[in-house]
Design a protein around this nucleic acid. Structure first.
Lengths: 338, 338
DNA sequence: ATCGATTGGGTAATCGATTACCCGGGTTTC
DNA sequence: GAAACCCGGGTAATCGATTACCCAATCGAT
């Protein structure tokens, strides 16, 4: 079924070396040979076997990527950006989803390594449980983490400055007049969840506003809805809620409005990520924009620099996020606050 | 850097054949040998090279999947379902996005074939332009199309019965009292776009209601918004709009409501797909549910049956969709319809 | 005691592309 | 005119895992 370079060489009446050289152009051949090889290739429909090439060259021209889930638009946005970036160097992407499970994640890493990817980009699903698999992989091939990261400084990382992001969000609602604030986030199983909460707490403490206990669940719309319900049940609403991502914010806004609460008049809401659906929800969501394109470019660039098991101290590149004020928070114009 | 089975054999003091047999269990070895090989593997951190295995076995244990884009939640849902299904047989998925471009699609297919995937699952982005690449690929490896398909019967296909789906949607709004209807869909570059329009036209013609000219753009929220604007500009609204997917429906509902039009009282809207955001938009969207999980299972099953370049006539498996009535259309209760 | 069968282990071929190495013929240079 | 050099082409080693094939040892049966 497979036509090999031997078949091409035979059909062209030359040796496999000549055929290979004619195809790769890595050594000169006479126009005559080039011509006959080209004709043979066309006739036989020859397509080089990348598996054999990979074995011989000890490089596959692929990099593996592991993200928690591909139904989360934030991750698909990163994936697309990474793919675009890799395309420039003719590298292919092997994409895997860990399904938010450290066990699945470890298996995915193992098969990617078995397939001898030239590098790995990963967003580890658990700040603690992902550690051994990630460090082990980093020892074998160049690896960079993107967005989420494991604890300790064992591997390079590119992401947004989470703490700076929530600080922007919190200061924004406080500047808009909020005197009591709450936080709707995720259980602290990954780095984003932790840093966004800690950044929030630090900022509000400094500002001296009243802080309601944080609500921690999942990074989903459903959890946002549930968080809204809890606020309503508590009988007293904060002036503003800072959310750890857009999904939560969307759910929160929906459940508040369903109960007749006005957003942003009664409660201001700010999300995080600004991918996809922030603009299309109603009203459009104020949020903190992650510079996904830059992160992807930076991750790929960094991947090209790191070597497997490099003893050099790991780099952490935190890109500054940007606040995007839409309609779930009060715009701050000089002197208008409150 | 790479530890091979030779290293393991040496460390265990046995031949590579014994090491290989101890690992695969495909022939018996003495407990003594098994034990020493196991210890050597653990000590050296040996991990079999899947590239070499693939070359030798002439099978990679991977199948390739090409979808138009991974930011479309419908495709990611299918991808996840396929991945789950393949996991059962230990097969890995190589996922590629064609970015809605037949050229990119052809390139992706070529690299997947070069990497010697054992099979292909594809949702071709263009009903015409995708034909040569898809047929060529089908000649080389087992291939099944999912959801979208190319024209002509050249390759197997699994998907939803698009015409039956829009028929359900159209009959539903007509039963709900609509006397004038419109269709918001996509330009006819792929099979879904064509079949959904033709199914709509057939149904409304049969029902004898007034039909406004169809609006054809993209499968996006933005186009839905634009379609809503066009309806408003036209000065006269239909009683119902059937949309070719949920994104369009979401955008349409938003732009109508923004203009003060009541949904479903003034205009009923029905979408198509029922993945992800149909439930979380406001109000929740009535739509036609695609049985994604079944489609994925069926596609994988079919892939296991087809052989490359099989002269057997291609199969087309159309799964029946189901109407899900939520709140953008009037529920039909006996005797209540207008 | 001897012959055939069984069992477990080792050697080397295999998959397909690349390339180190070698060779022969033509040029150039002193 | 001979030595040194290119230049283009061919042969075979290489990457790592698997396994066809061969061999020696052991066992059971006659």
């Amino acid at each position: 079924m497979g036509v090999t370079i031997h078949d091409v060489a035979r059909a062209a009446g030359v040796s496999v070396a000549s055929a290979s050289r004619a195809l790769s152009g890595r050594r000169k051949v006479t126009p005559e040979v080039a011509e006959r090889v080209a004709r043979a290739v066309a006739e036989l429909g020859y397509q080089p076997n990348a598996v054999a090439k990979a074995l011989r060259d000890q490089t596959t021209g692929t990099i593996g990527m592991v993200v928690p889930g591909i139904s989360n638009p934030f991750f698909t946005t990163i994936v697309e950006a990474v793919e675009r970036e890799l395309q420039k160097s003719g590298t292919d992407l092997l994409l895997c989803a860990s399904q938010y499970s450290p066990q699945v994640e470890a298996r995915r890493l193992a098969t990617l390594l078995a397939r001898r990817v030239d590098g790995l980009i990963i967003s580890p699903c658990d700040i603690e449980a992902s550690v051994p698999a990630v460090l082990d992989a980093a020892r074998r091939v160049p690896l960079v983490q993107v967005d989420r990261h494991i604890e300790g400084g064992g591997a390079d990382w590119v992401g947004v400055d989470d703490e700076a992001g929530v600080t922007l969000a919190a200061e924004h609602v406080i500047a808009g007049g909020a005197r009591s604030v709450s936080f709707a986030g995720s259980r602290l199983v990954n780095s984003s969840a932790r840093l966004r909460l800690s950044g929030f707490e630090r900022t509000v403490a400094r500002a001296g506003v009243e802080v309601l206990p944080p609500m921690l669940g999942e990074f989903t719309v459903e959890w946002g809805v549930e968080a809204g319900r809890r606020l309503l049940d508590a009988g007293r609403l904060p002036d503003a809620v800072v959310c750890a991502n857009d999904e939560i914010a969307v759910g929160l806004v929906r459940s508040l409005r369903l109960a007749g609460v006005h957003v942003p008049e009664d409660v201001a809401v700010v999300g995080f990520d600004d991918v996809g659906h922030a603009t299309m929800c109603d009203p459009p969501l104020s949020t903190v924009r992650q510079p996904v394109e830059e992160m992807a470019a930076e991750a790929v660039r960094l991947l090209g620099q790191v070597k497997a098991g490099d003893p050099r101290p790991a780099q952490r590149i935190a890109i500054a996020p940007r606040l995007v004020v839409r309609q779930t928070s009060r715009p701050v114009t000089a002197g208008v606050a409150d």
